[in-house]
Structure formats: structure tokens, C-alpha cells
Design a protein around this nucleic acid. Structure first.
Lengths: 244, 244
DNA sequence: ACTTTCAATATTGTCAACAATAAAGCGCTT
DNA sequence: AAGCGCTTTATTGTTGACAATATTGAAAGT
């Protein structure tokens, strides 16, 4: 019965694909849970046709897996998938930084310096540290990605990979290291871009992401050592939909 | 009425998606042409439901673009798209080569050496040069990609990017440079992998792909200089379906 | 009590008809 | 004759019903 805010879109299928994506990324639909077509159709107040199209789209985005005559399930993030994703990020965002060193216009460079200064001010005042660590981090990375001026690269990173990355963050404490260290690295990357040093910009970006990847690897090894199951799992089921 | 060989699959939608993909990549459906749902449904002998699901899948693969209430069109490859794709290949296959240097088992290394020796023999005998240049090239690259042991990287490169690359090859003379030079580079890459030198393997693979990209760039500039339209276009319409 | 087989149920896959939107064709006005 | 607006047509979006497959549960046998 359309119990979610309806984002008016040209077609129902797009609408539902968007809402389902949000629901999965935000964890409203838990990982590994089955996607029941009749149930969701009733919930969103549409017929199964557009709903199925939306599910096919989500499959293309890698958010659900489908099995013929059985149905769709939300993906279950595990450590290996996340490490693999970070490895791809390292390669792709490294390339994006290299391209940005050639293509980023000077006013955008100035604007990014201003953004980093804002982050610095937030950290100095010790206020809203979480924002700088999360949204601020994404802001910086996304703007460098867009500066690559490579349409296919932009689409892949922003529309496909980052959905999974946000989904992963939602389900982990994400005890990332010192945000001041991250900010220092961001500044170094931006300096390289401002100086049009593509090689250096790529090197620094890769080191930056590789560091985050290693932290994730360590955290997972510790979790495994303390006899915890190695798969990332959510701590609370916010809705009544059954999973597994 | 099912006038194409039906590849038995679990579901009609998968079947048609596969056949449509082949038809587009092989150029049977020309670039830029409209995808008419009633026409294709009649042609494949299915209803519009599974056909639409197949089209949505193709949109996810980047082979067609859809506009609400208007329909789907086969993508029109242009120079910029191909250059962008090669740039992504450079980043991703470079990373794949690095990972392969760590993960490729020794028997697979031996097998790849045997493959390159076969290519060498073909070139020495000057027989079937085309195979070495095309299929052989892909064989080598795909096996290194698989040796990366990164499931997401493998899926992206083999299922998404390579479809566009093959499509591009079909529509260009692809006057690539000396296949002996390419073979030498392949051997150098494999040597680095065999010696577990990830840095070197990545460097060589990137240089290898970058060289191909520069050749494409040159060819396109020449074509543009001779007052040819810069977009890649097919030379013959094999079927009667109208485009644009 | 446990496994196995088979019927009952529910879910997914497919189809054909209806609704809504866009494209095409015609006539009209200037 | 050219441009504009409306009507007609065709295509896409959506729906509900039917078919096929998988899952569940009960009954029977060991």
C-alpha cells in the first residue's frame, strides 16, 4: 500500500528499483533474506511485472542473486567480497586520481581544498567527527572520481561499487583509523592533483585505499581469531521479514 | 518463430538475453538501431514479458540504453567510449596481472607458456595469423584475469567489459600492430608472473594495454583528419532492421 | 523413531489483454 | 506553401490470470 515515500519517477519499475536499493543498502531488508515477489508487490502496491524488472536491475547491480524457479536473495556480504571490492577500488580510484591530475579544472581544485579545510576545522573543533569520517570521506572520493572525466569509470564506481561499500559500512562498526591521518592523505592526494602529477596522485590514492583494505583485513582476522564467524552480519533485524 | 538456434536455458528470459547479446556483439542487430518489443517477441516466439526482462539485463550490461515510454536502442560505440574502456582495462587488468603473480598455480603458468609457444609456432609458420591476433590474445588475457582469484574483478572484466570490446573489434578493421610484438609483451608479462614479481607484472600489463589504446587513438585521429566521421560505424547492415 | 514417497501448497515463469504515453499523419490556418 | 494543432496509430508500461517448478507437509513403510 505504498507505505514508503514514493519517489516519483517516470516508470514504476525505476521507482521500485530505487526504493529497493535504498532498503537493501540501509539494511531495512536484511542480508541473505529472500525477496518474495507477492509480498513486496503487495507492500509497494504494484503488480509483479514492474517488481520483477526492478529485481532484475538489482541483480545487475550485484545487490541480489537470483536462482531460476526459486527466487532472489539479498547478497550476504562476506570478508572476501569486501576485500575483493577494495582491491578493485584501489585499481580504479587510483586511475581516477591519475586522470583527475590531468582533467580537474582549477576552480574545482580550489573547491576541494576548501572542503578539506572544512574537514580540518571540524576535526580541530572535535565536532561532528563522524561526518568527516563518513560523508566527508565519500565527498572527497566521489569528486575525484567525477574529475576523471571517464564516463564508464564514473558509472561503475558511483553506481555499482559504492552501493556495496555503503552497505558494508552499515553493517560494521567501521572502526577506521585516525581520521586526521586520512585527512593528511587526502591533502597529499589533492596536492599531487593540483600539481598535475598523475603518477604521484595514483600512487597516493592507491596507498590510501590499500591502507583501509589492510585495516579491514586485520579486523577480520581478529574477529576470526576470537572464534567469531568470519562473515559480516547485521546485529539487529529491524523488520519482521525472515532471512535465510 | 524461434528462427535462431535455441540455447536451452532454465528460463526463457536468460535464453533471450544470451541470444540478444550475441546478436548485438556480432553486429546482427546494428548499432544505434531501435529494439522493438513486438517485433523481437514475434521473431523469438515469446511473449513480451521475458523479452523485457532480457532487455533490462542488456541495459545492465551496457549494451542498450532505455528511455521511458520510448524504448531501447543498441548503444552506438564512439571513440571516446572505447578509449574510456581501454583506460579501465589498463587499471583492472594491470591489477589482475599483479594478483596473478601471487595466485597463479604453477601448472597454470606452465599451461600458459605452452599457449604462448603455440602462438609463436603459428606466427613462425605464418599460418592462421588472425587467430593468434584475436582469439589467442583474448585467451591469454582471460586466463590471467581468472588467475587473479578476485571474483568481482573477473565478473566485471569477462562479462561486462569484454562484450563491448568484442563488439568494437567486430566493427573496425582492427589494424593492430605487429602480433610478434604483442607476443613478446605477453611473454614478458608471463615471466614476471612466473617470478612472482607483482609490481613488474602490473607495469608490463598496463604498458601492453596502454600501447593498444594509443594505437586506437592514433587511428581515430587519422580517420578524423581525413574528414571521416569520428564515430565507429559498421560497414554493412546484414539484416533489414532499420537503424535511427 | 526415522526416512521416503507422494500429494498439497505456494512461488516463480509466462502469457495475453488493458492503460498510458509518444510518434505519425492529416487537416486547418495564415 | 509552410507551420501549427489535433486526431489517429503504434509502442511501451502495467495488470491479472494461467502454467510450471519448487517447497512443504503428511502419510506410509522400514
Amino acid at each position: 500500500m505504498n507505505n514508503l515515500i514514493s519517489i516519483k519517477s517516470a516508470t514504476l519499475s525505476e521507482d521500485i528499483a530505487q526504493q529497493l536499493t535504498n532498503a537493501i543498502v540501509q539494511g531495512d531488508i536484511p542480508q541473505g533474506s529472500k525477496i518474495s515477489e507477492p509480498e513486496l508487490a503487495k507492500q509497494y502496491g504494484v503488480s509483479r511485472g514492474p517488481l520483477r524488472e526492478a529485481i532484475v536491475k538489482l541483480e545487475g547491480l550485484g545487490l541480489v542473486t537470483r536462482t531460476a524457479n526459486v527466487g532472489a536473495r539479498v547478497i550476504q556480504l562476506n570478508t572476501q567480497d569486501m576485500l575483493d571490492t577494495f582491491t578493485m577500488r584501489e585499481a580504479l580510484e587510483g586511475m581516477a586520481a591519475r586522470l583527475a591530475a590531468s582533467n580537474m579544472p582549477s576552480d574545482e581544485i580550489d573547491s576541494l581544498y576548501a572542503l578539506l579545510n572544512k574537514h580540518q576545522a571540524h576535526l580541530d573543533a572535535n565536532q561532528d567527527e563522524h561526518y568527516v569520517q563518513q560523508g566527508g570521506n565519500d565527498d572527497f572520493h566521489l569528486r575525484i572520481i567525477h574529475a576523471s572525466d571517464n564516463a564508464k569509470l564514473i558509472r561503475l564506481l558511483t553506481e555499482e561499487l559504492y552501493a556495496v561499500i555503503r552497505m558494508y559500512r552499515r553493517h560494521t562498526a567501521d572502526q577506521r583509523s585516525d581520521p586526521r591521518q586520512a585527512l593528511r592523505e587526502h591533502k597529499a592526494i589533492l596536492d599531487a592533483i593540483a600539481n598535475h602529477e598523475g603518477d604521484l596522485a595514483e600512487l597516493l590514492m592507491r596507498r590510501h585505499i590499500s591502507r583501509a583494505r589492510k585495516l579491514l583485513e586485520q579486523a577480520m582476522q581478529q574477529a576470526a581469531a576470537s572464534s567469531q564467524p568470519p562473515s559480516i552480519h547485521h546485529t539487529s533485524n529491524k523488520n519482521k521479514r525472515g532471512n535465510q
